[in-house]
Design a protein around this nucleic acid. Sequence first.
DNA 1: CGGTTGACGGCCG
DNA 2: ACGGCCGCCAACC
Length: 111
Amino acid sequence: MAADPNFNDHVFEVARQVPVGRVTSYGAIAKFLGVGNWSRKVGKAMGLVAGIEPYVPFQRVVNSQGRLTGGTSGIEHRAQLLAEEGVTVIGDKVQNFKTVFWDPVKELNFD
DNA sequence: CGGTTGACGGCCG
DNA sequence: ACGGCCGCCAACC
């Protein structure tokens, strides 16, 4: 399956469904979209979120370790945004990740 | 809990 | 077409 132009949009849409004070992982989103091994592509997609609308809470999307990735750029920014939402982040890692983790596959339902 | 290793798949030069 | 590079993940130590 090659690069689906709609894939990014799906990623963004799922990211928007993440409740405040919660986070999800690249793999969880990829899995939800039915492409569990495209997790990297999800990460790439998040890199394009800057400036698009509606706003995509990319700060709520981390890796499976609850770690904010993307080099060192913007991590502090994301950490602060999460902190304001009630998610404690120390350094580049989400504290109590297991509790704040939000899995779209299990918790996201369609109206 | 943190650091490392192996593997999968797509992407860029 | 080819080789090297990832904003990953799971398993291991």
